[in-house]
Nucleic acid binder design. Structure first.
Lengths: 215, 215
DNA sequence: GTCTATAAATAGATAGAC
DNA sequence: GTCTATCTATTTATAGAC
């Protein structure tokens, strides 16, 4: 970085273009978003973007890689021990602070879910597969560690699916209603999850644990 | 219906066009879907559709009304008593059998969530608001009826939000992976919900209730 | 590296024939 | 009611000047 030479401005432009494309593709989708909208945002022309990235599709790929790199950094791989699921809480925070990335994620998820020929389809399928795998591992580690009660693999699978589903669904509700407290709702879900998965005899009064007064 | 007169074929065409538009808008989104794709599906021309519906946007409105009418019939208003949440289980079944309507719902939810100027934005916000309200009512009625333990309004709100989120998120997972058993995953979520919300003293062994062997 | 100009395709919508 | 033909606007992508 801070590289000298003939490519300096090109590299800076690429970064600015990718940032603008996150918003454009996030708001209007891949087909709906246009290179001219991106160009307008960064003060260039559509032709310049085509030459820099080769094609609209390759710009999308660059956008997805940027997003992937950023969110993996937010979630982190160090999530072990007590704060196992904390990385995903940080992801909710990140999405509240950077709405453009959340819009991109939800838009790409829906578009690729509905059309297998979407250029980002394989990317998103792989993303969902690995996220589910990650969540299953966290839950299984919690069982081995004694933080969670014993569960069958089927129970672990379903908890992982529901947890990912809750994140996606709550994020949609946040986008539709900016007053919605995404991070708080997600953390309440986690509290209920931890109460439900508490080792037998670890805590009394399971009927009310994990849900503080909120009304 | 089976109406005579000069409007007969027009009415039949309208129904066929709306059905085709469900798929086209569902798969490609509103901006991404074209009148020509719809016309091709039903064996008409794009010009004929424009004349019948006035504009692309009015076709979308007709599509949303059709979808709304159908899904409300599936969910039903009779959902009281023990089978309070059964209507939403039927909705999951319906979505597995009629994937086009599910694609339309998820696509519209994502598009309107990301762009407030979307022609279906107000429609979807209203849809989410009323669904959340419906779910809160079902939970509150369950409390009054004694099926559920006492909850604060905040707890009810969060349970309704998480339930709607789980439905949306699990549906996305089903679309991305057709082998995913949406209905079963949803019913497992409901079982966990009912176990979590069981009246105090109504059932022993809360740690394992509601989750049958699945591995 | 970015521009202008342009090619080639496609969009939604309208007009008029039948 | 549906078609053909056409208008106007946009799209991605390319070519060549600077």
């Amino acid at each position: 970085m801070n590289r000298r030479g003939p490519y300096r401005t090109g590299i800076e432009s690429r970064a600015k273009i990718v940032g603008a494309a996150v918003d454009v593709f996030g708001r209007n989708g891949y087909k709906g978003g246009t290179l001219q909208q991106v160009a307008e945002t960064v003060g260039l022309t559509a032709g310049a973007i085509t030459k820099l990235f080769g094609s609209k599709e390759q710009l999308l790929i660059a956008v997805l890689q940027h997003w992937s790199f950023l969110t993996e950094g937010v979630i982190g791989a160090e999530a072990r021990g007590r704060d196992r699921l904390e990385g995903f809480g940080r992801l909710m925070e990140f999405h509240m602070e950077h709405r453009g990335f959340l819009e991109l994620y939800i838009t790409m998820a829906a578009e690729t879910a509905a059309s297998p020929e979407h250029p980002a389809h394989d990317f998103m399928v792989e993303r969902y597969t690995s996220t589910l795998s990650h969540l299953r591992d966290l839950l299984a580690e919690g069982v081995l560690e004694g933080s969670f009660r014993t569960m069958s693999q089927g129970e672990i699978d379903n908890e992982a699916e529901c947890l990912l589903a809750a994140m996606d669904g709550l994020e949609i509700q946040f986008l539709l209603n900016p007053a919605f407290d995404l991070e708080r709702s997600f953390r309440l879900y986690i509290q209920k999850l931890e109460a439900r998965l508490a080792p037998v005899g670890a805590d009394a009064a399971p009927a009310t644990v994990g849900v503080p007064a909120v009304g």
